[in-house]
Design a binder for these strands. Structure first.
Length: 319
DNA sequence: AAGAACAACAACCGCCTTAGG
DNA sequence: ACCTAAGGCGGTTGTTGTTCT
């Protein structure tokens, strides 16, 4: 039955394509305009009908995808934060390639984006390690090396921002000396990773506090960068190389169908990040051995060659 | 400066599930 | 109960931009 149904569908699609009715490929500014305007007035859903009524020569599926992955107001753009990366790694270790399920825990991020991240970044690392990305060995490596590094990055971000208000004496009192241009290593990594009032400490308590609901807006709030509202799109249209953003910004902010705030309401992000509550059973906390972890250039890759060699050494010694 | 190689990500495809008639 | 269309999901491909040689 299904095969015949699909066959019919394909025939319809093919005939339409043969007639040149349906457009494919990258969306144009005009198409984006039509779609956004139509949804602003009539809402989402009934995508095939929507495509027709909006005057778009696209399939309903294509419209839906364009809207959900790109045009929808709460879609968050830009690089994934360490928090988000950490969350993806952890959730993927639990659920595998359930991208949409994972995406539900990263508000503003689409399943497509997460999937792309996994394929381009995570699988690449696995290849470099010569390990299957789905293997338990790789998962071990992620837990032992990558996640601590992300946590460290989060801590550094947090400390960097807090230290801007501290004088040198205060910094000494806190036992840290950074950031400097040459990445001074803190005297104690455990201090760096597990300060008493750190996000990590709160992070690790979440499971026992509330593992299912998304609450406690204070949690993980130290790094305000992660929840800043679409600065690229809303305040600097010129930074976007894609036609959609600038256009979208102008259109939406001038369209009375949308309230201004809804265009960049990402406040839920940190809450949801924290709300996963799975860290009570994961070896995230302070598991990193004392060693030369800290290096420059962590923004570019969180899994540097030193780590890989270290991991290989551990594998070879049977750890 | 030009071409090749690589990376990032937008978009499409095919299959499955679900809702409604 | 069956049929169909629509929506959703994960895998894959194509395009574009960037970096390297």
């Amino acid at each position: 039955m299904r095969a015949s149904m699909l066959g019919v569908t394909r025939r319809i699609c093919n005939s339409r394509e043969e007639e040149g009715e349906l457009r494919r490929g990258p969306w144009t500014l005009e198409e984006d305009t039509l779609l956004i305007r139509y949804i602003a007035r009539n809402g989402e859903g009934r995508w095939n009908m929507l495509a027709k009524c909006a005057g778009l020569k696209r399939t309903g599926k294509s419209c839906r995808l364009r809207w959900l992955n790109y045009l929808k107001p709460d879609v968050k753009r830009g690089n994934l934060t360490p928090q988000e990366q950490l969350l993806i790694l952890e959730l993927h270790s639990k659920w595998g390639n359930r991208w949409s399920k994972i995406a539900q825990h990263l508000p503003g991020r689409t399943d497509n984006e997460i999937k792309n991240y996994w394929r381009t970044k995570v699988q690449k690392e696995a290849r470099q390690l010569n390990i299957e990305a789905t293997s338990t060995k790789f998962l071990d490596a992620v837990r032992s090396f990558w996640m601590p590094r992300l946590l460290q990055k989060m801590e550094q971000d947090s400390y960097s921002s807090s230290l801007t208000t501290l004088d040198s004496q205060s910094q000494a009192d806190h036992g840290v000396r950074f950031p400097s241009s040459n990445s001074t290593v803190p005297s104690s990594l455990s201090t760096l990773l597990c300060p008493p009032e750190s996000k990590l400490a709160r992070f690790s308590n979440l499971g026992s506090e509330n593992s299912s609901s998304v609450t406690s807006p204070h949690v993980l709030s130290a790094n305000s960068d992660t929840i800043s509202p679409h600065p690229e799109i809303l305040e600097n249209p010129t930074c976007s190389p894609l036609h959609g953003d600038t256009f979208y910004n102008n259109l939406i902010l001038s369209d009375t169908c949308y309230e201004e705030g809804s265009c960049y309401d990402l406040a839920g992000f940190n809450q949801a990040s924290a709300g996963m509550g799975t860290y009570d059973n994961s070896p995230l906390e302070c598991q990193m051995a004392e060693g030369n972890w800290v290096s420059d250039g962590m923004e570019d890759t969180l899994w540097v060659m030193d780590d890989m060699w270290q991991f290989r050494d551990l594998r070879e010694t049977g750890i």
